[in-house]
Design a protein around this nucleic acid. Structure first.
Lengths: 212, 212
DNA sequence: GCGTGTGAACCTCTTCACAGCG
DNA sequence: CGCTGTGAAGAGGTTCACACGC
């Protein structure tokens, strides 16, 4: 594949297209136009065509895109044809909640293990998965060379979890902690910040009132 | 306050500054420079000054920003001086997980209730909060005119929950469902999409390998 | 001297509109 | 004729660099 540098926004949209195409496939649709894809994802059809044309010419003029082919191509671009296993650090309410609710129907991801450092929790069950000791992390990450780790530890323990993961060779991390974590440049970190989302919502809700 | 139209990106950054300032306050710091704020949030100092200067002149040349004053001003801008109550729809593993883990230390938000439509769950406990019937939603939303609702229902039930909230007059919603939900224009919706974050991480992890 | 606030340059992403192919 | 792919225009956000106030 050609090395194209592309914005994160575009990647995020590709993820949405993929999700949308999977649903279309289930509904038994074979063809989708940029228009349909666009209205499903809440953006303009021009944006859809632009995103896709960066990587190749996947469509047919006059008809649209073949659902199956486009999905394959997008998964190729994203690298999600066979998604990496996901591990969870922290068997508290969020960690277990994520584990139990699972990731089915989201593109093939699966939680493959959950870890905690609290001896009381080690060995207990989250759904049908047994909680392992964080001391086992190095083994797992090295065995499966590619792993995504989700940090769902209690406030304050984020950096410790992160350091452990980095030491074990983990290169991709999704953190639910609010602390900004220090990491080497070659490790990718993303954050799920519920409180920031709430701030954005509060702002737009109250701003709307003022403007009324 | 003057009606300034401003990007969501900027609002999101203001939320980060606020968080950072709260921590500084706890550490007992009185003054912060744009430089310090910037490195804490992982952006440039110019961006910080730009964001803040949109709303006023909060700093003092030569010294920086007074932590307490700036925090007050930002909370004023965001409308988060006294944050609205947050309710959760769906007492499954994610909903209960969120409820139990709470929102302390994130800017004053608090979960004020959790709802489910499953009669088996109604009356049971999530942490120390009793699960209510979704039929009670209209009352609560109307009583407290401003509420943020978090949708954490099982896949497929998202739109139903949304319709109920909209009918009850709720204007701000944070959804953990993957389905794109239909809403009136005056209702603000934001999504937490774990699987999209995983896609972005997978992409950057595997792309890095290819480029190496 | 130090750090803010800001015009101006820069850059990136989005939208428009249309040529060209099926 | 319909819909894709894309040059060109436009909008929006970011960075630079410096004047000004403390």
């Amino acid at each position: 594949m050609i090395a194209v540098k592309v914005s994160e926004k575009s990647i995020r949209r590709l993820s949405h297209y993929a999700r949308c195409l999977r649903l279309a496939k289930i509904r038994g649709e074979f063809i989708m136009t940029s228009q349909q894809l666009a209205s499903n994802c809440g953006i303009s059809s021009a944006a859809v065509r632009r995103d896709l044309s960066i990587y190749g010419e996947f469509g047919k003029q006059g008809s649209g895109y073949k659902v199956d082919d486009l999905l394959t191509n997008i998964q190729n671009i994203l690298g999600t044809t066979d998604p990496p296993p996901v591990i969870i650090i922290g068997a508290g309410s969020i960690g277990c909640g994520l584990m139990i609710s699972g990731l089915t129907g989201t593109g093939g991801y699966e939680y493959s293990a959950i870890y905690d450092k609290d001896p009381e929790k080690i060995g207990s069950l989250c759904g049908d998965m047994q909680v392992r000791s964080t001391e086992e992390i190095p083994e797992l990450v090295k065995k499966k060379t590619e792993v995504i780790a989700v940090i769902a530890v209690t406030s304050g323990a984020g950096q410790e979890a992160m350091d452990m993961l980095v030491a074990a060779g983990c290169k991709a991390i999704l953190s639910f902690t609010l602390e900004p974590l220090k990491v080497p440049d070659d490790v990718e970190v993303r954050y799920v910040e519920v409180s920031t989302e709430l701030d954005v919502l509060t702002h737009s809700m109250r701003r709307k009132e003022v403007l009324k």
